[in-house]
């Protein structure tokens, strides 16, 4: 992360920007370079008289599992939607995988996978057909498409039900299908917007294991959640957002230590005087 007073020097290698803090020349030569997957710079989004995101700036490294925390209406989903190219920012810029989202949305869409908060699946297709449709939309080669579909359906426990129409699925099965559709094409960067909301404990842990596996594969994951234990379990770093502003940023342990609290929920209370869940 950028430290106060440091300079940022950046250049592009492949699709990822290399960022090296240059506090001193000596530091540069001693540190290994960090690859930045996502850069958000002074991002603001207004909807008429409501400011959903207010001057948000942060960077997410490649391979990092980053959690965006905050109550409903904090601006998490709006931020994700801007990062995916679904919304245009009022001001500021976002860079995903080395590309400005506004200028090259086509390039960005090739490398991202998006799991929306509200389950978005075609109910008249089977689970397998939904997954294969999105693999085809990413123009995956047929063999890889088949292999990835089988693997992911198996990992998330949907293989046996894969040929049933989604309209006959339970809510949890739909949410797992929703997640697989986002990841079937093996994206470099995944945006998971509340992927485990309304899931039973067993399904939630299966998804957690799956997300941990993504991290092992060096995927960059942005995860929004209001389950504090989920963020503590999975995330390398978290950013807490309230009223569109970033109010805290750091590793879960770091934040708990800094605010001398037992969990992230208490961090939020200390910062805002409110409980995250009260806002839900």
């Amino acid at each position: 992360m950028k430290s106060p007073g440091s300079l940022i020097c950046s250049w592009e290698i492949g699709i990822f920007k290399q960022v090296i803090p240059l506090s001193t020349t000596l530091t540069v030569s001693m540190m290994s370079p960090k690859e930045v997957a996502i850069t958000i710079n002074n991002l603001t989004k207004r909807f008429e008289d409501v400011t959903a995101v207010d001057g948000l700036s942060l960077e997410v490294e490649k391979g990092e599992l980053f959690g965006l925390l905050g109550p409903n209406g904090a601006g998490k989903t709006t931020t994700i939607n801007i990062l995916c190219g679904l919304l245009k920012p009022t001001s500021g810029s976002v860079n995903v995988g080395g590309y400005d989202v506004q200028k090259r949305p086509d390039k960005v869409k090739e490398m991202i996978g998006v799991c929306p908060q509200d389950t978005a699946v075609f109910s008249y297709l089977t689970g397998r057909e939904n997954v294969e449709l999105f693999a085809n939309l990413h123009a995956m080669p047929r063999e890889k498409l088949k292999k990835n579909t089988e693997d992911l359906l198996k990992k998330l426990g949907l293989l046996e039900e894969a040929n049933r129409h989604v309209r006959k699925y339970s809510g949890g099965m739909r949410r797992r299908t929703n997640l697989i559709m986002a990841l079937v094409h093996d994206p470099e960067i995944a945006f998971l917007d509340e992927p485990t909301v309304a899931m039973d404990v067993q399904s939630r842990h299966a998804v957690w294991d799956f997300i941990k596996e993504l991290k092992k594969q060096n995927k960059t994951v942005i995860l929004t959640t209001h389950y504090m234990e989920e963020a503590e379990e999975l995330c390398d770093r978290v950013g807490i957002i309230d009223h569109g502003k970033l109010i805290a940023l750091g590793a879960p342990e770091q934040l708990k230590s800094k605010f001398r609290t037992k969990n992230l929920e208490e961090v939020f209370i200390q910062l805002t005087g409110r409980k995250i869940r009260e806002e839900l």
Binding site: C84, G85, L86, D106, K109, E110, I112, V114, P116, A120, F134, L137, H138, A139, M181
Partner: peptide, 8 residues
């Protein structure tokens, strides 16, 4: 919206 997040 979901289809719009793909390269389609």
């Amino acid at each position: 919206r979901r289809i719009n997040t793909t390269p389609t």
